[in-house]
Every structure is written in structure tokens, then in C-alpha cells.
């Protein structure tokens, strides 16, 4: 896997948490720089470690007192209503899940990370991951059914 792909994955993950393009990109870069600072180079990088750093940076960002009101530059692409119905349904279904469930689905199914990486990134055991992944997939599916029925 090349560095660019790693960048994309971390960025997608951070964006999911922050919902703001500029902040997400800053945090993504900060993640890589922290990694370099720790390991001396980026030649051999470790996704598990990158996720852990990214996650902590996101948490720090939440805690930081906000200088300007966030909603203004809030990215609205998640709520765009001019999308085809089917795709809207998926998004709405997803939005109904807990953030934890969304996070698991993103890491495992969108970023296609191996189970070991997801466990390390979230700090949970393999067993716990399988259980939560299963329940997240189930709730997503049922939520999707409800959404599609409604439409």
C-alpha cells in the first residue's frame, strides 16, 4: 500500500469524525507528522498506529474550546437532498446508527482494514470486534430496510 492510500484512509476516517474538510485535513497531516516525529521516518508506517494518533487528535479537537461557531463552515454534503433517493436512504440509515457502529463499519468495510488493525485502532479485543461488527451490520441492514420502505 502506498502512502497516498494511507493518507486517503486516515483523511476519510478523520472527516467522518470531524465533518469539516479543513479541520480533517489538518488533523490528517498532523497525524503523519506525529508518526514521523516518533519513528523518525514514514518509510515503514503502521496503519494501526496512525489510526490511534488520528483518533486521539480528534478527541483533543473536540475538547478544544471553539473560537468560531462550527456550524457555519460545517460541511453540508452529508445532508444534500438532491441525491438519488436510494443513496439518500443509505445515508439516512447510516445516520441512525450510533457513532461507534458507524466507526466500525467505516474502518472495516470502507477502509477495508484487517481485523487486527481495527481492534488496535479502537482498543478492543477481537471477540468484542466481531460482536460489535455483527450488530452494526445488522442494525444498518434493518435501518436500511425501514428507510427504503418509507421512501
Amino acid at each position: 500500500m502506498d502512502l497516498e492510500e494511507a493518507y486517503d484512509k486516515i483523511y476519510r476516517y478523520v472527516y467522518f469524525r470531524m465533518k469539516n474538510q479543513a479541520i480533517a485535513e489538518d488533523i490528517t497531516q498532523e497525524t503523519f507528522l506525529r508518526f514521523i516525529g516518533k519513528k523518525g521516518n514514514i518509510h515503514v508506517y503502521d496503519m494501526r498506529y496512525l489510526y490511534t494518533i488520528a483518533r486521539n487528535l480528534c478527541i483533543d479537537e473536540y475538547r478544544r474550546p471553539k473560537a468560531e461557531a462550527l456550524p457555519e463552515d460545517y460541511d453540508s454534503s452529508m445532508q444534500t437532498s438532491d441525491l438519488p433517493e436510494e443513496r439518500m436512504a443509505v445515508r439516512d440509515a447510516l445516520a441512525k446508527l450510533s457513532p461507534e457502529d458507524q466507526e466500525i463499519l467505516l474502518l472495516r468495510h470502507v477502509n477495508n482494514e484487517p481485523v487486527g488493525t481495527v481492534c488496535k485502532a479502537l482498543g478492543i479485543s477481537r471477540f468484542a470486534l466481531y460482536r460489535r461488527l455483527k450488530s452494526a451490520e445488522d442494525s444498518f441492514r434493518s435501518s436500511l430496510e425501514v428507510e427504503t420502505d418509507e421512501k
Binding site: 498532523e30 514521523i36 516525529g37 523518525g40 521516518n41 514514514i42 518509510h43
Partner: peptide
């Protein structure tokens, strides 16, 4: 630009 002096980068 945030890249520390000790690093290969």
C-alpha cells in the same frame, strides 16, 4: 513545517 529535525524526512 512540523517535520522534526531528527527524522529522515
Amino acid at each position: 513545517d512540523g517535520i522534526p529535525v531528527q527524522s529522515e524526512e
